[in-house]
Each structure stands twice: as C-alpha cells, then as structure tokens.
Design a protein around this nucleic acid. Structure first.
Lengths: 142, 142
DNA sequence: GGGAAAGTGGGGATAAGTGGGGAATATTGT
DNA sequence: ACAATATTCCCCACTTATCCCCACTTTCCC
C-alpha cells in the first residue's frame, strides 16, 4: 500500500521520481489525473479500470453526465515508470497542480497524491490547527 | 484504451493527425460520425460493428426508429490512417463539428471525440464551474 | 566505513506533428 | 470524345518534443 510523504524535485523536463517504496504497485502502469483541491491523483491501472467502468456507466442522455465524463477522461493520462523509476508529468497536469519545482508525493493507501510543496505545507498547517477534528474521527477505531 | 486530450491542427486539406497513442486501436480502420453536442465520434471498426448491429435491430415498424437508423448510417463515414497516422475529415463532418483550424482530440476510453478547440475549452470551463463534481463522482470509488 | 540503492541531471537517438509537392484518379465543360 | 480543371492519395521533408540511456551525488543500510 501507499503510505508516507516524500518531497521530490521536478526537473525541467517535467519528470518526477516516484518513491522507491511506491514503485512495485505501479509496475503495470498508472493513470495520472486531476484531483480535488489542485492536487494530482496517481492510480495503479488496476484501480483506474474500476473508476473508468463506473464513468462509462454514466447515463449518456444527461448533458451534465456527458460533460462530466468528458472532463474526467480528458484529464486522465496513462503513464509508465522509466528505468529510473520516474514518470513524466505533462505540461497540462503540472499547470493544474501548480507544480513548480519541489513537490510532495503522498501515499493515500490505495492511490497517490502529488502536491506543490508550499500548498501541501499550508494544508498541513491548517489540518494541525484542527487536531481535535481528526482525533474525533479516529476515536474508537483501534 | 483512449485517454487524455491532445490539441492538433487541421490542415487545409482537412487532415487530422491522430495522437500516436491512439493509433494502435485504429489500425484496422475506423468509422467517423456525428456525436452529441457538435463533436465528432471516432470509433474503431470493431466497436462500430456492435453499434451497427444494434441499429439494424431497431424495429422498422416505428417511424422514429426508421429515421434514427437513416440518420445514423448516413452520417457515418469509414476512414483509415495514412502512413503518417492521419485521417481526412470530410467537408461535411468538419462543418458539423464547426472545426476551423485547431481541434481537441479527446480519448473517451472506448472511442474518441473531436472538438473545435474553442468549443472544447468552453465545455471545460463550464464543468469547472460546477466545482469538484468530477471528484465527488470519483470519491468513494477507490 | 563500504556498498548498494535512491534521487537527480543531462545528452543523443528516435518518433511525433505538421506542411507541401507531385502522380494518379475523378469531374467538368466544350 | 477529349481536353482542362479539380480532387484524392501517397510520399518526402522539416521542426520539435519525447524517449532511452548513461552518469553523478547523496542517502540509507549492513
């Protein structure tokens, strides 16, 4: 599973080194797409196919559903690890995520999120202020 | 399958370069036809035959079904990739899609859509206005 | 401390996207 | 029917981006 946060550098070719611990789960390829709050999602293909089939099931008679489906598929980009364990993030994805140079690669258990580092740190600080909320969500679960 | 968005130029001969990643799925030929919302659909032949047989199965006693069938078959045009991986879009199809010079070629998983770029961008902006609709549709799915 | 692996950087070969010329085929007009 | 014009298709050429490989530095681990 994908756990932990890693700060990596995006080079001028748009390449991002995937943390070594995450690579095994991405050997068969991955799909990178836009996530919530200006981050990027990075799914193993096996996970993506499930998402894709649910998108395919959307009713084509509904205009909103049609456009949602279009946006979702258009934003998705297949990718593979190179021999050094990196992926190329397209110009478009980088722009969406506001990725400049240093990014946070965050394991989200079943998938991976990629954040511009300043944005991630701001989010982290914000969450820290709300410590009680998190604690209340976790109580009685372990 | 077909994923991602690519901005390509339509030359004065009406030729459109198919993104290299899409070509493998179209080697055996394709069928281009009118899509919803003024875009073009581009199906691999194998996918098209399924659609065609469903159209064939429509009840010929029903006037609506008859006309749907007529419109669907009349709009469809077979095409092949040339040696450079391009297809020629007929005058009629270009006019229907309002294709001027730059178009968006969008992978829709099982088929491909072709949009006039300004129209596509308008659609994208519209979807974005609806907030994280995409994310909410994907959330709870992985 | 030594070895291996991880993260980072850069250069060269190859393919992708685009434009244009010319031969073969079809279309039009006299 | 024949010539003139237009259309389609195939091939070649250029520019830019992408991919693949090699190499260096730092960190981690034994």
């Amino acid at each position: 599973m994908f756990l932990g946060r890693f700060d990596h550098v995006l080079d001028d070719k748009g390449r991002l080194a995937i943390p070594a611990r995450f690579r095994a789960g991405l050997q068969d390829g991955m799909v990178i797409t836009r996530g919530t709050d200006r981050c990027l999602y990075l799914f193993p293909v096996s996970t993506w196919t499930g998402i894709a089939s649910r998108l395919d099931a959307l009713p084509m008679g509904d205009p909103n559903a049609r456009n949602l489906r279009r946006a979702a598929f258009a934003a998705a980009e297949p990718a593979d690890l190179d021999k050094q364990g990196r992926v190329v993030l397209s110009e478009r994805l980088r722009k969406y995520g506001g990725l400049e140079s240093t990014v946070a690669v965050v394991g989200m258990n079943s998938y991976i999120e990629v954040w511009d580092l300043p944005a991630w740190e701001a989010l982290e600080a914000q969450v820290e202020e709300q410590g009680d909320v998190i604690a209340s969500h976790m109580s009685g679960q372990f």
